[in-house]
Structures are given as structure tokens and as C-alpha cells.
Write a protein that binds this DNA or RNA. Structure first.
Lengths: 181, 181
DNA sequence: ATACCATGTATCAAAACGATATATCAATTT
DNA sequence: AAATTGATATATCGTTTTGATACATGGTAT
């Protein structure tokens, strides 16, 4: 049972649009993708090497423009692996929310500490939500263009959930501070 | 820079209420906690051993009722570690949504495949939401009791976000199937 | 009887994280 | 002109976590 590396699919998905370096891939993951996935150099570079050996991608040294770098491109075999994964509708969704963990065990400390944890969370959500809304505005203008729907939908997913987070934060703070009418 | 094991905090939090075996801890994590965190035997047992060596927990062989087992209890030192973590309002929240990943790269396959992926997600969310709502009903009756607020709030967090997920699923399916009026 | 499932502890390979090391190039500062 | 800074770029290392597996016991239903 080959324990399928998920990072492979992220990389293949990105390479299906254009050839990229490992560094490029990391930048893409830290961009729009970061709202629902992440990946580190420590997983990207080993994965690229393994996938090159397996024939899913090709590497090419390019020292033309500026400094030396290794540009990776997807192969037909890589495209096959990507589409096979995409066509499988089963997906594992997993969230690790340290904020919720601290809330769950909040009984061991004073309420103020837990409220503060929620406030930090709230602040971060507010910031990210603003960013997502800017993305949405820009994307809604080019929605007719091919494939932009998919990007757009991941953004609206973020907006929907983040707005839910903010509603919950208000309720949670009110309940902890005893503002029940 | 000791890379603080998060599983330690989950274990200490659970042990702060009552002594437990490793197996018990796993069951607790797979219960109410699974909506915002997870942990496997492969991390629980090694963590328990390490923490016993560090004096954060004590182990005691108990062969009294039925078969042999090892019951762990928290020490003052363990309580100190737990509260120190709880009082730090900074928290890392991270979600890995394979559903969203498949959506993001949906352009590489036919729309039906992506719609099906969303439908599978929707189905799962609907199931979990029902469960969460049952939890909420039961908890709302004992909300005055000590510490139940914290549990209750993690449940309402799940409800709020899951309801947002369902709203999004409708929108997403409509957009992909071209039901725009 | 025996089959089955929950209980219970433990380990292993593989995957991912997070930090760090190293080096080059471009832009800015001094 | 020289020095500094920050972005680019590749790579590795120890640690943590996952997911699977192994193994054994106790209770219960057939």
C-alpha cells in the first residue's frame, strides 16, 4: 500500500499549468493555496527528486536568466497521476486548531486567558478575511476566463468559513464574559 | 529550540480531569476532540513515555479490574506545563483540506468529477453536523455546570463552520453546473 | 466451543515540519 | 566603489506525526 504523498499532487497540480522551480512551488503554496494547504522545503525538494526518478516530472538545469536553477516540468505520466487523483472524489480533510484545543481545556486557567486566546484568533481571521475579499473582487471580474472558477471557489470557501469564525468569536466572548441577557 | 510536542498538551489536558490509559486518551481524542484535533497511537505512547521520564506524568500498573493496563496521572510539574501553554494566547491553526486542493486543480478534469468531490464533502459535513447538533442540545441543558462552557463552545464552533460549509457547497455546485440566472 | 469485537500496549516505515546551512544575485545604502 | 540587505535558490537534518501493523487479553453473542 504505497502511502501516497499528498505533496506530490500539489506539485503536479502546479506543474500542470507551467514549469516551475522548487522555490517557485513553495511561493505558490504560500500564496493562495495557504488557506487550505501547506508545504515546506523539507517536503518539496525530496518529493521533486523522487518524482523525477519515477518519471512523473523532468528536471532541467537553466542558468540562462540570472543564477542557476532547476526547472521542473510535468510528464504525461505525471498528468495521469494527477488526473487519477482528481477523479477520486474521496478526500481527507483535517484541521488542527490549537485555538480550539486551548479553549477546550480552558477550565484549567482563568477566563481572561481564554478570552485573550479567542481575541488573538479573531484578529488573525479579520486580517485574512480582508485579504480574501480583495482576492474575490479581483477574481469576480475575470470569472469568465478558463479555470478561474476553481480559484474563485476556494476563495469564497475561505470567506464563508472565516465569516462564520467571526460570528462565533462574538458569541464565545459574550458567553465567557457572562454577557447573557 | 525544543520543538514543543503538541500531543503533550492534549494528553496533559485530558489527564488534568482524570487519570487515563493510553487507549483511553486515544478514545477521548477520537470523540469530541476529533472535530479540531487528532492524534494516533504512534504519537500517544511515545509521548507518554517521554513525559514520564520528564516527570510531567506518573505511570501506574493497574491489573485490578480485568486485564493489565498502565494508568497515567498528571503531576504538579505537568499541570504547570499545561497552564503555561494555556496562558500563551498565541496558537497555530492549520487546515489541510484535500477537497479544496482537488477543487483548486479541478481544471485538469471534467466538471462532473469536481462536483462529485464536493458532494462527497457535503455528505460528510451533513452527517457530522447532525452529531454536533445533538451534542449541543445535550450540553445546553448542563451549561451551568463547571467547565461545560468550554466544551459547549467548541461544539458551537463546529456547528457555525459546518453550516458555512453547507452554504458554500450549494453555491459551488450551482456555479460549476452553470445555474447562474 | 468459538468466533468476534473492544480493549490495551507497542513499534515501524514513511511523510511532513521547521529550522538551518549555504550561496548567488539585485537593489539599496553608505 | 564598497557594503549591506533582502529575495532567490537548493538542500539537509533532527523531530514529530501519521498510518499501518503486530500481538495479546477479556467479554459477549451464537
Amino acid at each position: 500500500m504505497a502511502n501516497e504523498r499528498k505533496i506530490d499532487m500539489v506539485i503536479l497540480g502546479l506543474l500542470s499549468h507551467e514549469p516551475l522551480t522548487g522555490y517557485d512551488i513553495k511561493k505558490r503554496i504560500d500564496g493562495a493555496i495557504r488557506f487550505f494547504w501547506k508545504g515546506s522545503f523539507g517536503s518539496i525538494y525530496p518529493a521533486l527528486n523522487a518524482m523525477e526518478k519515477d518519471g512523473l516530472v523532468t528536471k532541467e538545469n537553466s542558468s540562462e536568466s540570472g543564477r542557476e536553477k532547476i526547472v521542473y516540468a510535468i510528464t504525461p505520466s505525471g498528468t495521469a497521476a494527477l488526473t487519477a487523483w482528481l477523479k477520486d472524489s474521496q478526500a481527507k480533510n483535517e484541521l488542527k486548531y490549537e485555538t480550539l484545543l486551548k479553549l477546550f481545556f480552558g477550565g484549567a486557567v482563568d477566563k481572561q486567558a481564554t478570552v485573550h486566546t479567542i481575541e488573538m484568533f479573531e484578529q488573525n481571521v479579520r486580517q485574512e478575511l480582508e485579504l480574501l475579499k480583495r482576492y474575490e473582487q479581483n477574481l469576480s471580474r475575470v470569472l469568465e476566463q478558463q479555470d478561474h472558477v476553481y480559484y474563485y471557489l476556494t476563495v469564497t470557501f475561505g470567506i464563508e468559513t472565516y465569516e462564520g469564525y467571526l460570528r462565533w468569536c462574538e458569541k464565545a466572548k459574550g458567553m465567557l464574559l457572562g454577557n447573557s441577557p
